[in-house]
Simulated assay, not measured.
Amino acid sequence: MSKYQDIANDIEKKIIEKKYINKLPEQVVLAQKYHTSRVTIIHALKILQDRKLIHAVKGHGTYISAKPIPKIFLNSGVAQNDGFTKHTHDSKKLVSKVISFNIRKPTDKEKEAFNLSENEDVYDIIRLRILNSEPIKLEYTVMPVNRIPGLNLDILHKSIYSYIENKLGIKIGKDDRLITADKPDAYDIKYLNCTSNDPILCVKQKAYFENGTPFELSESRNRYDRGGLTVKKG
């Protein structure tokens, strides 16, 4: 294995372990840390970009990515009823653990999806949902700060949607949803206690306010044996 592949694997390990949060050190700092050249670091970062773990924002540095946004969500309008509804759980037994909560600049795809300028900020949230002490799903969420002001850790441990409707007084509308089966990644294996062979139910969503303004891009990674989706007619 080449040196830059070893470096990429080590940086990925640190991302998973949350030793790097939100943003990676500058390339020159990484080169010093790994006792190598900047060219080798660039090759290592290219591997991580291909793995969808990082993205570069011109003039701001290299950021740790949330899950990638499917093309289907970039220019869609207000969604029609997609025929699916999520299972609900007893709120007393369902716990949210915040793994990561950062504010950063949007990627190009996020700017397009939300119609944001490069100077506006987004929340980048990773939460683990735990039911009866068992992890059931990992959620990656990106939301514009100016559309949902005041998010904090206390709200994230409860319900963002309840905060939007009850505290901000904004009605939530429909959503676009893409549901697929996927192989587990390193985060799934770590946080959902699954093996590399366990299937993952992946739900990617773009949610809108009642007036049609998009406010959320999210991906939930669900253990196949702990919850699911039901089909609703009509």
Score class of each variant (00 low, 15 high):
P149C: 08
G83S: 08
P68I: 04
N22V: 11
P106L: 07
I189H: 06
V28H: 13
Y123N: 03
E165G: 02
L94R: 11
T36V: 08
I172P: 00
R221C: 07
Y187N: 07
H157D: 06
I7A: 00
S37V: 03
T40C: 08
N115E: 13
Y20W: 09
N222T: 02
Y34W: 13
D225Y: 01
E134Q: 15
I148D: 06
E210D: 15
L94P: 08
Q27G: 11
I172R: 02
K67D: 13
K46M: 09
Y208T: 07
D108N: 14
T107A: 14
Y140T: 09
D90P: 01
I170G: 02
E134S: 10
G83H: 07
S37Q: 08
D121N: 15
P149N: 06
Y20N: 08
K105I: 15
I16T: 10
S159A: 09
D154G: 05
P214M: 07
S96W: 11
I103D: 02
L128I: 04
E139F: 08
N115Y: 09
L153Q: 08
P184H: 09
D185F: 08
L229V: 11
S218E: 03
S2E: 12
N222F: 12
Y63F: 15
G234K: 12
D90C: 13
G169W: 10
L229S: 00
T107S: 15
C202Y: 07
I125F: 06
P68C: 02
F209P: 04
L178M: 12
K137I: 03
D121K: 13
L48D: 00
I125W: 11
A113V: 09
V78M: 14
K33F: 13
P214I: 07
P70H: 10
